[in-house]
Write a protein that binds this DNA or RNA. Structure first.
Lengths: 208, 208
DNA sequence: ACCTGAACACCGTTCAAGT
DNA sequence: ACCTGAACACCGTTCAAGT
């Protein structure tokens, strides 16, 4: 009986993917992702301290891969919330904003890693950049739809999308870091509704 | 000539205050405050690794003191922006929002330390909590003034303040972390104006 | 080609010992 | 009372050496 390479303590089928998976599992268990160590990830996979360096340039590169995965999941959450909403572009925009906040509070540590890894001006991790822009594009498209339907004020679509992103990102961060005195899940959704409702109201096209 | 205690390599006049000051200086120099080490702070003050532990329980306690100082400065910035504004409560609210974002981008590392240290539900550092609430109270008062003047919709003042805080905090964080493709100082102010203008517009009392 | 073992330069933190 | 020196248990990262 010769063991297959994947069963020995030596070769792994795909150590790269195993490391990302282990990092995700450890991050999900922690309330503070900054305490995650590369050695800890290696230990969980059952590999030496140095092994990850065959697949990632450094710790940041692994976290970038983890962040990329997070943006893909976020994009799916946002798209699915829009599909579930009505045909009204304004309701779609609000639904995606609420879904955004819900995603963040459901995966707090993962969300923090996403936003400590993602830099719009940094071209070190192109797939991460693409994943981040893909998620942002959902918000931006929702606003563009509202503008084309004449329900949102015209003009700088990108700037309005930045403003919307700021609102949901800020609320998400304050909630994740326990900087608002809210704990009840329903109260969180209420504030998210008030926030998105207020901003969208303020961005509405002026009815003649 | 006997040297005074403050001049020997041994006693300091006020090592506690010197450590906070050194930490602030080091943080101001760094773009990433998470790389700040306690040993580095001790080295800059010219004291042993263990010395800080006579004045702070641990590294977090020093960072809490640094964060507290940050919230005091922020409070002064917000109040001063309101004093400079017109009598209109809505303009005062917008001015404080813009001042908030300007403070954050002027002291990015300090701002990050403030929001990684401050926890509304954590009573470990009461002075930090008080300083954080003091800054938040400026925003909340501005909104309450707008409500009393009949210019902002009535109801949950605290929730509206949370929403406003979310907007400026989110914009601040996205700017600090270079997640928006803006670098020009004037463009930043433009977005901050658009953001605060849009939200305030959406929170306005309905004119009969 | 892929991984290990051992090493280097750092941490945060503790504690006996010095003044 | 306040600080030092040395130690402990951790890191991230590198590199010769193993398979």
């Amino acid at each position: 009986m010769t063991k297959s390479p994947s069963e020995t303590s030596y070769h792994h089928k795909d150590l790269r993917q195993s490391l990302i998976k282990a990092a995700l599992e450890l991050i999900a268990q922690k309330q503070d992702a900054s305490t995650l160590s590369l050695r800890e990830v290696a230990r969980r996979v059952g590999v030496s301290n140095a092994a990850p360096y065959r697949h990632f340039a450094d710790k940041d590169a692994l976290l970038a891969a983890v962040a990329e995965e997070g943006f893909h999941i976020l994009t799916r959450c946002l798209n699915s919330s829009i599909e579930k909403a009505s045909d009204d572009p304004l309701e779609q925009l609000q639904a995606s904003g609420i879904a955004y906040v819900k995603f963040a509070i459901s995966h707090p540590s993962h969300y923090r890693v996403m936003f400590s890894a993602f830099k719009a001006d940094n071209l070190c991790y192109p797939p991460l950049n693409a994943a981040g822009e893909e998620a942002f594009a959902v918000l931006m498209d929702a606003i563009a739809n509202g503008q084309q339907a004449g329900k949102i004020q015209g003009g700088e679509t990108q700037q309005l999308a930045w403003v919307t992103w700021s609102l949901v990102h800020g609320l998400a961060m304050l909630l994740i870091d326990h900087q608002l005195t809210i704990t009840d899940e329903q109260d969180i959704v209420s504030v998210a509704e008030l926030a998105t409702q207020s901003l969208i109201n303020g961005m509405k096209a002026k009815t003649p």
